[in-house]
Amino acid sequence: MLRLSQICVDAHDPERLGAWWAGVLGWPLRVDADGDAFVTPPPGQGSELLFLAVPDDKVVKNRLHLDFTPDDQQAEVDRVLALGASRVDIGQGEQSWVVLADPEGNEFCILAPE
């Protein structure tokens, strides 16, 4: 049996990007001696995000992305944009979700409330 432990994200600056995501999610950040940044959810609330240093640039749309379900979509979109996210068009057209990117260009979606 497998358990999803971590979602790994390549980053130019793991500590900076990890801190950004920690602020977005309200989860604690830990950086180890190798410079890897861990953003850890409260127990039972998801998998840890692990940010790893890579030299190469992100050049195409993510093959895997994160989706978040808010209580208030517009409030969360506004909040995350104010923290430094950007709107992106990946060809999604008019949808009920909003596609954004983190400061290093990794796409994620904020869905409509359930």
Rank of each mutant, 00 (worst) to 15 (best):
residue 40 T to H: 06
residue 49 L to I: 13
residue 26 G to Y: 08
residue 5 S to T: 11
residue 59 V to T: 15
residue 31 V to M: 02
residue 60 V to F: 12
residue 74 Q to M: 12
residue 20 W to N: 00
residue 27 W to L: 01
residue 39 V to F: 06
residue 11 A to Q: 00
residue 102 D to N: 04
residue 47 S to Y: 04
residue 60 V to Y: 10
residue 24 V to P: 05
residue 39 V to A: 05
residue 103 P to V: 09
residue 96 S to R: 13
residue 2 L to T: 13
residue 44 G to Y: 07
residue 35 G to Q: 06
residue 98 V to M: 10
residue 30 R to M: 13
residue 41 P to G: 06
residue 66 L to C: 08
residue 58 K to R: 15
residue 40 T to A: 11
residue 25 L to Y: 01
residue 81 L to D: 07
residue 96 S to N: 03
residue 8 C to G: 10
residue 38 F to T: 01
residue 67 D to L: 09
residue 80 V to N: 06
residue 69 T to Y: 06
residue 105 G to T: 08
residue 102 D to L: 04
residue 75 A to H: 08
residue 104 E to K: 04
residue 8 C to L: 15
residue 85 A to S: 12
residue 11 A to I: 02
residue 50 L to G: 06
residue 73 Q to N: 08
residue 106 N to V: 03
residue 11 A to R: 02
residue 62 N to K: 09
residue 92 Q to D: 13
residue 4 L to F: 13
residue 93 G to M: 06
residue 106 N to K: 00
residue 25 L to E: 00
residue 14 P to H: 09
residue 91 G to I: 03
residue 61 K to M: 12
residue 100 L to C: 09
residue 83 L to P: 04
residue 78 D to R: 14
residue 65 H to S: 12
residue 87 R to D: 14
residue 79 R to A: 15
residue 3 R to Y: 00
residue 6 Q to H: 14
residue 7 I to H: 00
residue 86 S to H: 12
residue 15 E to W: 05
residue 106 N to L: 04
residue 34 D to W: 08
residue 12 H to I: 01
residue 25 L to Q: 05
residue 108 F to M: 02
residue 10 D to V: 04
residue 112 A to H: 11
residue 52 L to Y: 09
residue 86 S to E: 15
residue 22 A to D: 05
residue 98 V to K: 02
